[in-house]
Computed example of a mutant assay.
Amino acid sequence: MHEYNIVEKGTAPGKAKKAIILLHGRGASAEDILQLAQYFPGEDTYLAAPQATNHTWYPTSFIAPEEENEPWLSSAVEVVKRLIDETAQHIPLNKIYLMGFSQGACLCLEVAARFANRYAGIVAFTGGLVGEKLKPERYNGNFEGTKIFIGTGDKDAHVPLARVKESVEILKKSGAAVHLEVYKDRPHTIISDEIEKAKRLLFS
């Protein structure tokens, strides 16, 4: 099970006007993903990134049978939900951004969809909802128009485009305004065009 280990930067939550919660990918760290925040408006912003135990949120592919990723997946969801709830004690949800890359992007979307609400915005750099087959009954709440940016490659080796598109439809049904950007032959990474488009969509 994951320890509750949060790396924080920026303005203290009691004084911040907004927050960005960032989720790292497999094999990476909280410190790694926090570097992504430098590309987004950061004045009066609380930055928080949980650290996955052993640098991995769940052991196998996000589209593997669910039992292969438990209990780690459920534990990861609990960690992120706890961080959102604790941040929301100081900063309203509609001023809290959720952001992640790869495995962190999948976890970001999964938590957001399970507990849909009016967030400031959501950014998923290469990710989709988790599970061998998606279960719409698992997702609750309403995004109330929350803007979501998802960027992905058309032939990503880890995140099938079909699953990304399936995830987009579920997120839309939960009230999100989703912008999907598909890049031809893009490697499994974050590119500057994604950052700029996410910034314009969510932070302008």
Score class of each variant (00 low, 15 high):
3 E>M: 09
7 V>F: 09
7 V>G: 00
8 E>Y: 11
11 T>N: 01
11 T>F: 03
13 P>H: 11
13 P>R: 14
14 G>V: 09
14 G>I: 02
17 K>S: 14
19 A>Y: 04
24 H>Y: 09
24 H>T: 11
27 G>F: 06
29 S>C: 06
37 A>Y: 05
38 Q>Y: 07
40 F>V: 02
42 G>H: 09
42 G>F: 02
45 T>L: 06
46 Y>R: 08
46 Y>F: 15
47 L>I: 12
48 A>N: 04
52 A>N: 12
54 N>Q: 13
55 H>Y: 14
59 P>F: 06
59 P>M: 09
62 F>R: 01
66 E>A: 06
66 E>W: 01
74 S>T: 14
76 A>T: 02
76 A>D: 05
77 V>N: 01
80 V>Y: 02
80 V>E: 04
80 V>Q: 08
81 K>R: 14
88 A>R: 09
90 H>Y: 15
95 K>I: 06
95 K>N: 15
96 I>M: 14
97 Y>D: 12
98 L>K: 09
106 C>V: 05
107 L>F: 02
107 L>M: 08
108 C>M: 08
110 E>C: 03
110 E>T: 03
115 F>T: 01
116 A>S: 13
116 A>P: 01
116 A>Q: 01
116 A>T: 02
117 N>S: 14
120 A>F: 10
125 F>Y: 15
126 T>G: 06
129 L>E: 07
131 G>M: 05
133 K>C: 01
134 L>F: 13
134 L>Y: 11
136 P>K: 14
139 Y>T: 09
139 Y>P: 12
139 Y>F: 15
139 Y>Q: 10
141 G>N: 04
141 G>Y: 02
145 G>W: 10
147 K>I: 13
147 K>L: 09
149 F>W: 03
152 T>C: 15
153 G>K: 11
154 D>P: 07
154 D>N: 15
155 K>A: 13
156 D>S: 10
157 A>P: 01
157 A>D: 12
160 P>T: 10
163 R>G: 03
165 K>N: 10
166 E>D: 15
167 S>R: 09
167 S>P: 11
168 V>G: 05
169 E>D: 14
169 E>F: 04
170 I>G: 00
170 I>D: 03
173 K>N: 13
173 K>F: 03
178 V>L: 11
178 V>M: 11
179 H>M: 13
180 L>F: 08
180 L>V: 07
181 E>G: 02
189 T>V: 15
190 I>W: 05
192 S>R: 06
194 E>N: 07
194 E>I: 11
196 E>L: 14
197 K>T: 07
